[in-house]
Nucleic acid binder design. Structure first.
Lengths: 127, 127
DNA sequence: ACGCGGATTCGATGCATGTCAAGCTCGACG
DNA sequence: CGTCGAGCTTGACATGCATCGAATCCGCGT
């Protein structure tokens, strides 16, 4: 990657900063881009996108890995690796209960991404 | 292969399909994931994210490459390569006028991504 | 016609990523 | 204890990607 004077003050998880007006309304600053690009990258794989949607749309807000893995052709270790990527991006959270691991979505970052992509003054809920 | 049709006419990446309810409301199907993941991946680079925002927020709806390049540390060829990535993803469109090339945003796909990320029943405009 | 400056493309290189097989860790249950 | 199953981690490999310099293409002036 490049080296634009890396500000090593990353705070990947729990990004509560109201840092993101729609990109159509205002230019995204370099620091914001560095912070949010990994989240987009994490969603930039078909398997991870489906994983994220299965987690986000899970009834009860959480879903077991054992319910995720059979939906894909790839191996279990690959699913685990993708889940770690989503975890590192701050998009999901994992919790172990008994022998199973449950994943749940972190809506905060996803809402930031959605706001960033929203056209200025557009109402997405009018669907 | 010298076919410099700058207006890349790749196959339409679902710019009109109502394929995307919020992923928090319904699981994304494999075909949809295959279609939209490249768009997320295209936004998954800090430089491209800034480029996209500069294009989307440009006054008049378009911006010259000569106004984009000086904002980054990377070389001009790298900027051009990133712009091609955004073009191939269906996020921007390019037009040559005189010696300069102008880029403009294609809001259709971006709106699909925003809808996909929107929490069910949430109002993004209340920010 | 010629050269000039802007933008894309080409070829090369080093790093990141997706994937799998195998090994390991953590609870549960005999 | 000992073993078993569910997930995670590690090592390894092939592919992809970001980046650069150089070459090429494209209009425009002189």
């Amino acid at each position: 990657m490049s080296k634009p004077s890396a500000t090593a003050d990353l705070l990947p998880p729990a990004t509560q900063t109201p840092c993101c007006p729609p990109m159509a309304a205002q230019r995204v600053e370099p620091a914001t881009a560095l912070q949010l690009a990994p989240a987009f990258k994490a969603l930039g794989d078909p398997v991870r996108l489906q994983l994220m949607s299965m987690i986000a749309s899970a009834p009860g807000g959480e879903i077991c890995v054992c319910d995720l893995t059979p939906s894909f052709e790839v191996s279990g270790s690959t699913i685990s690796h993708h889940l770690k990527t989503l975890r590192d991006a701050g998009l999901v959270d994992a919790e172990r209960r008994a022998s199973w691991v449950y994943y749940r979505a972190r809506p905060g970052l996803m809402r930031q991404l959605a706001t960033l992509l929203t056209p200025s003054g557009d109402d997405l809920t009018s669907n």
